[in-house]
Nucleic acid binder design. Structure first.
Lengths: 274, 274
DNA sequence: CCAAGCTTGAAACATTCGTTCCGCTCGTGC
DNA sequence: GCACGAGCGGAACGAATGTTTCAAGCTTGG
């Protein structure tokens, strides 16, 4: 029996799903509960876990011994270690990101840094984007005949992505890519029945602001994705959503902005369909 | 005293650093230990924590009461809640993502889903991208005179981003955007002294593959970002990196791919400088 | 149909935990 | 220099925990 009893959660989980069919009924019940509620196993007491899993506390001890541990506490330590080994929270991670020397010669470390920056950005976005503003933005875009997309320089990939995704959802879209410096002409037909989605981050590209202003003066409602209440786009826009991306090695993440862009696309598509 | 006692960890942490100077010596000691070892506070018993912090268990109770809690257990619940509120692990999140009905009418839920997909993608990438392949890719790109970028349809935003970032690092870059269907001409001058970075995911865009093949036949080394060993790009490429993005609501994340693109850009820039 | 063996539930047990209380120590002000 | 009070450590208490035990229930093989 001593040969079993892994100290690592993933191994334990594999062992559980492998041996569950051979176990008695109540012990199967515990195994199921353990893999689907590992957090409870880590925090709860034997009594509380037993109640949630609808077994007796003694069954937990039997279960632990059946799979090779010395007792329930021994088993629980594996679940606790799993929580301990989880990543530190986002405040700490952001801090360590800025303290880290971004000159890492090892590309793998760079990858790690960018991954951290992206994850942190997404996490922050989820807490700062207000559901009401998001709803308002979707309202405007869902009623538009044509959605004009403006995003230049760093913001261009986001606009380009939307120009790919929106038509797939049956939404008439026009990407203002300013090719051959024809942005003003590309947007000339936008009117109150349309909408403009403008994307720009500090340092704001003047051309984006000019195009957004032109559209607004023609009566087209403007939805803006930008990074500050003081952004020139925020003044122009009917609705604006704040996205602050974390940076690493002097390059800002784009993960949160893209998430938001995808959300807008799908939400608009569904609101039109529904 | 009852007015204090925040239930939220961040508030508690702020309270601790604010009130620490006014506290007695041993209580300061506990406060320091608490903010620097919050995991221990969550999991440990009063005895084990006391030993690590080099105080008596009774001091912990005094400490908890001094800052407004009913006792040590009450204080500890805040630290435990902090761990509980951390995100569940990625396996669970991916599963729940697929089980979730993506028809959520609430845009906030869509945003949540896309955020999950992006985070999971990034996490998976970090485990699957091999440091050796990454190094090899950087080697090839760092030696190139000009880096040609090919990415169409869904992959175009990534190529467009690199066309923005690489020149900022002093790297000669040429974006093959296939404007006016002139992709073949845009790439005509690529040779062994250059390199091609090709990006394509299932369903693979034929034009991307054709362009990559043309460049390879001209002797240009090809680095590919793609999603499977069976991708046609993998055959053509000198080095290829595997990126599997999670999808949500029928749309795939791009977060991991962009992280990798940023990494390549900065790593190439540094290898050239160093 | 019966008996052996395993599974299960509940209670009793020992241990460990958090808490409280008491007395000593140190610093401060009269 | 003395008295007072806060701070602190250690022991004792009661509560809650994990564990063990035991008998009843069930399944299985003869």
């Amino acid at each position: 029996m001593q040969i079993d009893a892994p100290r690592d959660y993933d191994q334990l989980k594999a062992l559980l799903v492998a041996r569950r069919p051979d176990l008695p009924r109540r012990l199967q019940q515990v195994a199921e509960f353990a893999v689907s509620h590992p957090d409870e196993l880590a925090f709860g007491t034997a009594a509380s876990i037993a109640e949630l899993a609808q077994v007796q506390p003694s069954t937990l001890v039997r279960f632990a011994k059946a799979i090779g541990y010395s007792g329930f506490s021994d088993l629980q330590s594996v679940f606790r270690r799993r929580m301990r080994d989880r990543w530190p929270d986002y405040g700490e991670r952001l801090r360590s990101l800025h303290e880290a020397r971004p000159s890492a010669e090892d590309p793998a470390k760079l990858l790690f840094g960018f991954a951290e920056a992206a994850t942190a950005s997404i996490h922050r976005m989820r807490q700062t984007v207000a559901a009401r503003d998001l709803d308002a933005a979707v309202d405007i875009l869902a009623e538009a005949e044509t959605i004009y997309l403006v995003g230049l320089r760093r913001a261009f990939p986001v606009a380009a992505y939307l120009a790919y995704a929106l038509p797939k959802l049956g939404i008439r879209t026009s990407l203002i890519d300013n090719v051959a410096h024809m942005g003003a002409d590309q947007i000339a037909h936008a009117g109150p029945q349309d909408a403009l989605l403008a994307i720009s981050f500090s340092p704001y590209t003047q051309a984006t602001i000019d195009l957004a202003e032109a559209a607004a003066q023609r009566g087209a409602p403007v939805v803006a994705l930008t990074d500050s209440p003081f952004s020139p786009l925020a003044e122009i826009a009917s609705v604006w959503l704040e996205i602050v991306e974390a940076d690493f090695a002097a390059f800002r993440s784009m993960a949160a902005t893209l998430c938001l862009a995808m959300t807008l696309a799908v939400a608009v598509g569904e609101r039109r369909a529904g």
